[in-house]
Design a protein around this nucleic acid. Structure first.
Lengths: 190, 190
DNA sequence: TCGGCGTGCAAGTGGGTACTTGCTACATTA
DNA sequence: TAATGTAGCAAGTACCCACTTGCACGCCGA
């Protein structure tokens, strides 16, 4: 593989696990199997390399799509939610580190959550169409419901391996419960 | 103030903002206004000091209580949720850093979320009493609803200053929407 | 065959890291 | 008054950090 590419990859992984300060040029070089000098010859500085690596690592995706035409809202939302959760779990280390690094490197944190932002827009659009079609009740904030469901899924995804999830519910059960409550709140017609 | 106490305080704050590696003994001493040697005379090592500081910082609270006897469920939940959110916002830096540090210091991460755990238990107990009294419908998982609401509030609290909250809703509006959806999902009698 | 080009290697620079040692100054207490 | 404990200060140790320099080696196109 291209040296440049593999440097970006190992850097993103090291950053996700050890943070900015913990990702030393020596470790990067070692993990990529190249000389430390080569790192600087390619990127000039640690900062440039890290920025580029984080940005490209945050762009992985997409994680699933909601149908253009809402049909079985409950089922469609459920499979969508499971995909979002799986994607979040896959990115959890990067997200956690990115959020913490916001204090010292404010520009890298938002990019690590970019996927979640796009997902929310997608779900809001889907729910609006569903409401227009009379598939869900006329009351209840769609933006609020989206934010609440996504927040719940997102937090579960990034903390599940850290905190002994209270109750110890499995992923499918948890997500199904969340979707169930969401459809209940929105008055989804069975 | 006692030197030992002020060392613990500034250490917890430095850790919340700069992480484990970024919290150097030099900075600790400088921030506490003491000589660096004094730090080692009191705690022996950076590790001991950090552990103790994080633990004591995570124990601040409590942030509010739900009434023993459920009455106006919607209003009681709302004021409770606002208090939980405010507490989360106050602890957000410590929580974010603690979560990220889980990779390298697995034992400090859980303590930073301990408050949230206790809050969940409290809310589940409250909802069970409310259901027993017929104040909420018989369907819908109470544990699930609690987890979902707390997750949503918690994530909003720790990311609000990092990610440009989609929609730009204010805190009271956001929390009210979350509580509204929760009561709707649980069929709270008006 | 030759001239770049990319790479490895060894060494060094200036600074930061946790942590130690030896000494001095002061305030409390016996 | 004398002993003790707590603090500051200066210096030093051994290591890690990002980053630089100079040189040698091999590969590939002209």
């Amino acid at each position: 593989m291209d040296i440049r590419t593999s440097l970006l990859e190992v850097t993103a992984q090291l950053f996700a696990e050890h943070g900015w300060r913990g990702t030393t040029t020596r470790r990067i070089a070692e993990a990529a199997g190249v000389n430390e000098v080569t790192v600087f010859r390619h990127f000039g500085s640690k900062e440039v390399l890290l920025r580029e690596a984080i940005e490209s690592a945050a762009l992985v995706g997409p994680f699933g799509v909601l149908p253009e035409e809402p049909g079985d809202v409950r089922r469609e939302l459920l499979s969508w939610a499971l995909a979002v959760h799986a994607h979040t779990v896959g990115q959890r280390k990067l997200i956690r580190t990115g959020l913490a690094e916001f204090e010292e490197h404010p520009e890298v944190a938002p990019v690590s959550c970019e996927g979640a932002m796009r997902a929310m827009e997608q779900m809001v659009g889907y729910l609006k169409k569903a409401r227009a079609r009379g598939l869900i009740a006329d009351e209840g904030s769609l933006e609020g419901a989206t934010m609440m469901l996504m927040n719940a899924i997102f937090l579960d995804g990034i903390t599940r391996d850290v905190v002994p999830s209270c109750g110890g519910m499995t992923v499918p059960v948890t997500i199904e419960t969340f979707v169930d409550l969401t459809t209940r709140a929105l008055g989804v017609s069975a």
